[in-house]
Design a protein around this nucleic acid. Structure first.
Lengths: 204, 204, 204, 204
DNA sequence: GATGAATGAGTATTCATTCAT
DNA sequence: AATGAATGAATACTCATTCAT
């Protein structure tokens, strides 16, 4: 384990919290390597350097630890994005910035991607939380007459799917700047901007 | 099992072929109900009304039957689409027609959707095959100056992701015409059409 | 395994039935040796000379096989008693005969005792079935003016407890004739006979 | 925990004794609720409001604490009975009084019943201790020509079984006076009294 | 070719027990 | 003494796979 997000956050705390964090970090690493379905409890404890049974001192089952890991990561990602988006008023720039930074963060923290991508499908309210931010920005763009769309859940689904494709492509091919530029362009087009205006916001 | 695509295609043939088809159809039904990961061999044989050992007279493992089922369905879907697209010259109309019919077919054959959606992720060359057709139409649109894009695999990934979102939404909510219209609009925008021109090709 | 009641009863039948019987017989033997709580699934399959997983082809859990074993044995015991009690009219003689034969059967089939003794506590309707026969004989004795009791469930509980003590003593000490005589005397006394009359029915 | 027999007895003493008592009382409560087999060490420490490791500062294993709990309770019960039986000379009245009071005590201290009933089966010398008192009273009755029995261990087993049935019935149905009367009658009959004489000692 | 019983490796889960704090 | 986190052996249970009929 290189560093471990959760362990960083519980560094000074009690042993219980530190072990719990070790398990969460291990779970993330294992899911990144083998996927959510294939991840076994024993993989997680082994990766954490702990005994088999220790898992059950902290979580009831795989779903529980994965849910917690996914929420923890999402919280961190949203926190970082929030900080960087403060003061950006133009909705189109907000969308581009958020997308760019999101892909960038998941490129830097490669293990997080698998958990977030998997979590979006499996965790019920996970997606809803994510949508709240996105919807606000898009509605802002509509109010600013930058976007020409009806803001539906289905639209958000589409945008999130595009971002997911970008993250996957980036993990796979590692062409970050180009991929990010392309997906930002796609999203802006989707939101009703002309290719020309979209291109201005996403310069090569 | 209502009808069974594979059984239809092997109706008059020998017992071996008919049993094989029964397994393929059963696999599709089981995957539609429980998903690919959760589908057990014994679920498939039970659904087919066969003994579990019979499975191994025809397939080596779950992956093999699922791959075959996915390819069989994909072949059928592509065949139906091909027939309907014959003679359509305008690339934008081709894209709209293909998308509309694709969603429509998977709405009618609900069980196929799970297999195709799952198969796209898991089967290596599956996606490549699909892309050949799509790429041709988009390149045609570029040549016709209807689309303003660079045709990359990443672009195709995005379009396929949007179609996937539409299929999922349709399975879930059942608002086919409206969903199809929206996703066609999104794809045309993605391909570089203005909202206004896209809207003309996808009338309410 | 010496002979095996269930295997005897399924000797000519299909493999499924024979394996099932082997498991039932093995369960009885294991319970006799280690008790119901301590009996493990793997003990049973090992005793039956079968693989671990085979158990689950036939039973869902330990409770299920033990219940079935207990009912099967009880059915057999009741059958044997019934045959021998036919034509006995005097209720006191019926009670003495049933008790004597019951202890005698469980002395011959030592392994059955643990299952029946344990089953009586754990299986809900098991006891009820047993009581039906006993109650009939005691009511007959009351009608014949041989017994002087009110026939309540609590009374039956007491008599069954006395028989249980006798079976346990017999398993432990192996003094069958004397133990049987004593417990029959006790039961008759409990039912309201004087020691003198009771003694006549239970001669040394 | 309402009051706790062992804690009462160590109220003023050192911390070690008080913790030990808390564990004993907790063990009794847990066994009463879940039975001896199902009682887990952690159930006991949790019920005592202690950390699970604390258990091993005081006992080596479950058997040890249960044995100690059973003996402690038995000692208390015997003590209470002894006090009340002082001065009763007639053996039949002694038996009736002891039985009545015994059931009565276990009705008041419901949690004790499970431990004593379970202990009688599992603890080797437990039963022997109990029998010493019982045997003395019965031999006295034989000497007084009230009882007409041969005093064997098997006889004592029978009487104890009847008392056990009464306690269980009482815990289950809660008809104490009637149940006690019936079982006293049964015991006296068992010991060779006629129903008529027995009835006199156990008036409605 | 189909059958379906048997297999056993793989995985999850429990809980008595240890031991550093 | 008490704590409580960690341990890991013991056990239950699943399911893909084999193979005799």
């Amino acid at each position: 384990m290189r560093h471990g997000h959760f362990q960083d956050r519980t560094a000074g705390q009690g042993k219980r919290e530190r072990t719990r964090s070790a398990l969460l970090d291990a779970a993330i690493a294992v899911v990144a390597e083998k996927g959510m379905e294939a991840a076994k409890i024993s993989d997680i404890t082994t990766a954490a350097g702990l005994a088999n049974g220790t898992f059950y001192n902290h979580f009831n089952d795989k779903d529980e630890i994965l849910r917690e890991a996914a929420y923890g990561i999402a919280f961190e990602v949203v926190g970082r994005l929030d900080a960087e988006m403060e003061g950006i008023d133009d909705a189109a720039i907000r969308v581009v910035t958020a997308t760019t930074r999101f892909v960038s963060i998941l490129t830097a923290e490669r293990d997080w991607a698998a958990v977030l991508l998997g979590g979006a499908d499996r965790l019920p309210d996970f997606r809803e939380n994510l949508y709240r931010y996105l919807r606000a920005d898009i509605e802002r763009g509509v109010a600013q007459k930058k976007f020409d769309v009806e803001v539906t859940t289905f639209l958000l689904d589409q945008i999130v799917a595009l971002i997911g494709v970008a993250v996957r492509a980036q993990l796979h091919d590692g062409q970050e700047p180009e991929i990010t530029r392309q997906v930002c362009g796609s999203i802006l087009r989707l939101l009703g901007m002309t290719p020309a205006r979209a291109a201005k916001l996403v310069p090569a």
